[in-house]
Lab assay of single mutants.
Amino acid sequence: AVSDRLIGRKSVVMEAISPQNSGLVKVDGETWRATSGTVLDVGEEVSVKAIEGVKLVVEKLE
């Protein structure tokens, strides 16, 4: 599936994300709604860990 190619990809937070609120990330020039178990600020680099419905699950790059 097209979405499977996103797992493991680097992306950049475009709208802040917290455990309570989804935000936005940009992956390969496309904007996606995303969630995370931690707070992520605009501009942080993250990695796509999973896809749940139409949202990406991301975490901060170490």
Rank of each mutant, 00 (worst) to 15 (best):
V2P: 15
G43Y: 04
L56F: 02
V57Q: 05
V48F: 00
L56V: 07
R33S: 12
L24N: 03
V27L: 12
S47V: 15
V48E: 02
I51L: 08
A50S: 10
K26P: 01
S22W: 10
E45P: 06
K60F: 04
G37M: 13
G23I: 02
L61N: 07
E30M: 11
K10Y: 12
V39A: 11
A34P: 01
E30K: 11
S18I: 06
V54F: 14
V54P: 10
S36I: 00
V42E: 06
K55M: 15
G37S: 15
N21I: 12
I7K: 05
E44W: 08
V2N: 13
I51S: 03
D4K: 12
T38G: 09
G8K: 04
V13N: 02
M14K: 05
V54N: 15
S18P: 01
G53N: 05
E30P: 01
V13G: 01
K55W: 15
G29H: 07
G23W: 04
L6V: 05
V48G: 00
T31V: 14
G8H: 04
E52M: 12
S36D: 03
T35W: 06
V46P: 04
E30R: 09
L56R: 01
V42S: 04
R33L: 14
K10F: 11
E52T: 08
T31F: 14
D28W: 06
W32Y: 15
A1P: 11
K49I: 15
T38K: 07
K10R: 11
E15S: 11
V42Q: 07
V25W: 00
S47F: 15
G43L: 04
K10N: 09
A34F: 00
V48P: 00
I17A: 03
T31I: 15
D28N: 09
K60S: 07
G29E: 08
R5P: 07
V42P: 06
I17E: 00
V58E: 02
E62Y: 13
M14S: 07
K60I: 06
G37K: 13
G23Y: 09
M14T: 11
D28H: 06
I7V: 09
V46C: 15
G8V: 05
A34L: 00
E30C: 12
V2C: 14
G23K: 00
D28V: 04
E30W: 08
L61T: 09
L24Q: 07
S11D: 06
N21T: 13
L61V: 10
G29D: 08
E15H: 07
D41I: 11
K10Q: 09
E30A: 09
A50H: 07
A34S: 03
S22H: 09
D28S: 07
E62C: 13
P19F: 05
G29W: 04
V27D: 02
E62M: 12
Q20F: 12
E30Q: 12
L24D: 00
S36V: 01
V27I: 15
V12L: 09
E59I: 09
K26R: 12
K10A: 08
V46A: 15
E62N: 12
T31M: 13
L24T: 10
S18E: 04
R5N: 09
V48N: 01
D41C: 14
K49R: 10
K55E: 14
K60A: 08
W32P: 00
I51V: 13
I17G: 03
E59S: 07
E62L: 11
E30S: 08
L56C: 03
K55P: 01
S11Q: 03
K60N: 04
V12A: 03
L40Y: 05
S22E: 15
I7M: 05
N21C: 15
V58A: 00
G8C: 09
E15D: 05
K10S: 09
M14N: 03
V42Y: 04
R9K: 13
D28A: 07
V39T: 12
V2H: 12
N21D: 07
V2T: 11
S11L: 09
V46I: 04
G23D: 01
V27K: 01
S36M: 00
G53Y: 04
G8T: 03
E52V: 13
M14Q: 07
D28E: 08
T31K: 07
D4M: 10
V57T: 05
K60W: 04
R33N: 08
T35F: 05
V54C: 15
E59A: 10
Q20A: 11
V13P: 00
S36N: 02
T31R: 06
S18N: 08
V13W: 00
A50N: 06
V2M: 14
T35S: 08
A16G: 07
M14Y: 10
R5L: 10
S22F: 09
A34T: 03
K60V: 05
V39Y: 15
V48L: 01
E45K: 09
E44Y: 04
A34Q: 02
T35N: 06
R9P: 05
V39F: 15
K26G: 06
G8W: 00
P19H: 05
E62I: 12
W32K: 02
L61Y: 12
M14V: 15
R5E: 09
V54L: 14
G29R: 05
S18W: 06
W32S: 00
I7Q: 03
Q20T: 13
T35Q: 06
E30G: 06
K55V: 15
S47E: 13
D4L: 12
G29N: 10
I17R: 00
I7L: 09
D28Q: 06
A1F: 12
N21F: 11
L40E: 00
A16F: 08
K49Y: 08
P19V: 05
N21A: 12
S47A: 10
L56G: 00
A50V: 05
S11M: 11
V48C: 04
L24M: 10
R9G: 07
E52R: 09
L6D: 05
L40G: 01
V13S: 00
V57M: 06
E45V: 15
V54K: 12
K26S: 13
Q20V: 10
A34K: 01
L6S: 02
V42I: 10
S47Q: 14
L24W: 12
G23C: 04
R33T: 12
W32E: 01
G37F: 13
L61W: 14
K26I: 14
R5T: 09
L56W: 00
A50K: 08
V58T: 02
V12S: 05
K26W: 14
I51H: 05
V12C: 11
R33P: 15
E62Q: 13
W32T: 03
P19R: 04
Q20N: 13
P19N: 04
K49E: 06
L61H: 08
V27Y: 04
K55Q: 15
G8E: 04
K49P: 00
L61E: 08
S11N: 04
I17T: 04
V57L: 08
R33G: 10
D4T: 12
